[in-house]
Design a protein around this nucleic acid. Structure first.
Lengths: 353, 353
DNA sequence: GCAGAAAATTGAAGCGCTTCAAAGAAGGAA
DNA sequence: TTCCTTCTTTGAAGCGCTTCAATTTTCTGC
């Protein structure tokens, strides 16, 4: 005899009150006479009833009191937690969740399972790390508010991005101001894999696995270089997957194939830190021999050696904004957050060449 | 005229099939004749029906396919994401979630709201960062599997801990082996606030806001020191809240009040890194003037300068184990994970005093 | 002690879906 | 043609709770 766990109706019966009253006893106790409340509580205790099951409540048009975060592309949640960039972003999201008394659901699972998870996640809205086609479709079906990060996915889709082109322009301009003329770019490879090298000169160069934001940054670098008469097309580009040890492997490729570059423009701090480490390893002095400028201002950009010059984006604020948009149920907000150049110690005047 | 969003029964009606069949069309399509299935799909499309609402399914005894993580005590989720310790632990948890196709819910909210969140979280189980009385009660009510970290909360409660006493013993013994005889201990203050200083000599010394694990470590230090005839009671203890800038503030207190200590035993790497930073700032050379040993082997222990000697605990494995215990629905497992001494560069032979 | 207002309780109708025993159809063997 | 399988589809019973209009009880003031 498996005795089912007691439910609200059992308690109501035991206390000889109606189901509605029993419900109120737990949710709006101020509505009933104290003595009745006691009676019900007593009955509940006797039956081992532990309060309303959230599953029941939910159905009645209830909120789940949680929002979901979907990491971009094939990124695993474990990777996400380890990314300084996402960590800071997520703390912004978490702050808002906390303020609103909601929980944060990190959706995991690769490919098909992820899609299933999106369709079934018990959340009131989503933050998409980036909009993959598939996910976007599934998210749309849910008919809940959502926001896409770093990508304009259409006028009817909330998005929060940054002034990527402007940021990149600032980074490159900074290098130009320091007298640099020999550049190399490290772009972000958005899927796990070996770094991809793009030699200068090929007008049709296409990055292999990049996001729109990465192209924006490329344009921004180009904007600045153009003012000095340098064609973006003459600059080599390395696409590199940021997590360790890919960043380091990529950095080695970089130093081997572009040994004469004195200014390295990196689209992500994680990659930039990899460059710094490998430079040290190879006896290349930063910033004496080579200057490096990153992007994002991840938390460890400040503690690296040397501390990294980078383009800061307001990561925590970005997370907060995204979360608030979802909680407030907006439907077509497009926010672009400002960026700024943070000069630390990884850039210096070009040494006399 | 607000037109309610279509539900499964509408689809069934439109396709002139029973509710049950409609349900199967979406969940076990192989059960129906292909043509019927098409019919239903067509009807669904026409009505703008986007597939079964997870809320409905849930009620039918369904799993939520998610487990919840409850940060210890008053720690905010934002803080949790920024703690190197928890980050690594959580990536272990996330790995398992991913393998099992489940999501990870990070429960937030302070005090009362948190309790509400626990009672209402849509999860199949919990991992408790630490067992606070209140939370434990609420978690219990949920009648779902859960596991408590770093604390034995009773025989019927799953727990995953580490060999804290042994680890601390190793740390202190290492210092003894290096010839140190003047110690200071930095313990973990488990609530936000200024560091608390405990002078040596008071036999009744009670830490003010510490967890059982912290006392275990204290015992471990004591075990080792005893072998050298040093009484734990003669060693000053600083209790310090680990996040920045408290760690640094605490470290200043430490150096002011225990200027003659040459060996600092720190119960958390986060605090140890604070000590390292402040030492540098004050011109104290580590490990030449002072040796420091941490605990946890947080990710940044390896990149600090100098790299931190510490007691490693298998954080990722710990997260994995905890998650698996919850998913597998165990009820009284008590696991203790091993620790080991990792010698890096923050400890050295005592300089001739 | 009574009418009317205020407070407390009830009951029934869902919320949207899954499940499962049972009924119905279609197909084969005799 | 009839009986027995096997494959499909149905129907009804929940899952556990909330809500709200309607009803009943209790309280006020005179």
């Amino acid at each position: 005899m498996v005795k089912r766990t007691a439910k609200l109706s059992d308690v109501a019966a035991a206390a000889k009150v109606s189901l509605g009253t029993a419900s109120n006893a737990f949710n709006r106790p101020e509505l009933l006479r104290p003595e009745l409340r006691d009676l019900i509580e007593k009955a509940a205790r006797k039956l081992g009833y532990l309060g309303p099951d959230p599953k029941g409540r939910l159905l009645m048009g209830g909120k789940t009191n949680a929002i979901g975060f979907i990491p971009a592309g094939e990124m695993s949640v474990a990777t996400a937690f380890n990314s300084p960039f996402l960590r800071k972003f997520l703390s912004g999201v978490a702050e808002v969740c906390e303020e609103r008394g909601a929980s944060l659901v990190v959706i995991s699972g690769a490919e098909e399972r992820k899609d299933w998870a999106i369709r079934n996640a018990l959340v009131d809205g989503f933050i998409l790390g980036h909009a993959e086609e598939v996910n976007l479709i599934s998210v749309r079906r849910r008919k809940v508010p959502f926001v896409v990060m770093d990508l304009d996915a259409g006028p009817d889709v909330n998005s929060v991005g940054i002034a990527g082109r402007e940021g990149a322009r600032l980074a490159a301009q900074h290098m130009l101001d320091l007298g640099h003329r020999k550049f190399a770019i490290v772009s972000v490879l958005r899927k796990r894999g070996d770094a991809v090298w793009h030699s200068p000169g090929d007008r049709e160069r296409q990055l292999s696995a990049s996001y729109p934001l990465d192209y924006e940054k490329l344009d921004g670098y180009g904007d600045a270089l153009a003012t000095a008469g340098i064609s973006l097309n003459s600059v080599p580009i390395l696409e590199c997957y940021p997590p360790s040890p890919w960043a380091e492997a990529g950095a080695h490729v970089l130093f081997e194939r572009a040994p004469d570059a004195t200014a390295i423009l990196v689209m992500s701090d994680t990659n930039a830190l990899g460059v710094l480490n490998v430079a040290r390893e190879r006896g290349i002095k930063v910033p004496d021999d080579v200057s490096v400028v990153g992007f994002d201002d991840a938390p460890d950009a400040i503690t690296s050696s040397p501390p990294l010059t980078t383009i800061a984006q307001p990561l925590v604020e970005k997370g907060r904004l995204a979360a608030n948009i979802v909680f407030d149920g907006f439907h077509s907000r497009h926010e672009i957050m400002p960026v700024k150049l943070i000069i630390r110690a990884s850039t210096a005047f070009r040494s006399n060449a």
